[in-house]
Design a protein around this nucleic acid. Structure first.
Lengths: 137, 137
DNA sequence: CTTGCTGCAAACTGTTTGCATCAAT
DNA sequence: ATTGATGCAAACAGTTTGCAGCAAG
């Protein structure tokens, strides 16, 4: 999902085009990372000094609703992180320092037989580590 | 880990034996579920009407430090859940209604080769569903 | 000019902490 | 008598909401 495509989708759904939204989308498109709301805010405060968390949260949540972004909580973290959504089912290795991700095409659910006593509705598989840039710190 | 064993460990480490701690441990030992702090509190307020969240949280965190309980955050939930810890590495199917768990002895990390560009330090694999008792609601 | 977007302030949830008191050893 | 355990109140982080004004269509 690139920025132009996302903006088109927004327009289609009756959302307005604002500079803040575009720049948020640009940020996620440039950075293939899981980014927390706070970091989105900080990245944008250069261009939008008065920008508030409210706007960040409202837009992030809009983007997730539209399928533009995906949202996760790293194990133990008490905050959400967001990154560009890609269509096909996949999992991630996530850098605990910078949020950079790498896709994993192995899904453990493929090898798991049906469970007699549970109706399965979802799963979470994430791998945590440090990327080559963050490991020397 | 049963209650007597856990109490022994507490004593060993210089922690005191209180009725509240014993009953908390009993609760987790009886119920093989992931329980949230709030539900622990509610389950105990019958016997300890003045019981506060502070005590619950402090004791839960002590138990986790000692390896008596394990802690997780279900995907999307903004709260921690706790359950009896077992030694060997494993994963869970977790009922989204009652927190009941079933152990999974498949670990996807076994099939994952080393990643050249990430130093892996942890992972999370959880399966969410509804148990046979909760499915009809 | 209409409707959605935004900032402000306030509320909310789950969790943590300082302090004085109480209870287990 | 010591030292840890507890309740209270307050603080904290991340997130959400009502409202009035602003800006994009």
């Amino acid at each position: 999902m690139d920025v132009t495509q996302a903006l088109l989708l927004l327009k289609e759904k009756g959302y307005k085009h604002t500079g803040k939204r575009e720049q948020m989308l640009q940020l996620f498109s440039d950075q293939k990372r899981y980014i927390a709301a706070k970091d989105v805010l900080e990245a944008m405060q250069g261009d939008y000094p008065g920008l508030s968390f409210d706007t960040i949260y409202r837009n992030l949540s809009t983007f997730v609703d539209l399928g533009i972004l995906e949202m996760t909580e790293l194990d133990g973290e008490k905050k959400f992180r967001f990154s560009c959504s890609v269509g096909e089912h996949h999992h991630h290795i996530i850098c605990l320092t910078c949020g950079k991700t790498k896709h994993i095409h192995l899904c453990p659910m493929d090898q798991l037989g049906d469970s007699a006593d549970f109706k399965i509705v979802g799963h979470k598989f994430e791998i945590y580590g440090y990327c080559s840039e963050c490991i020397n710190e």
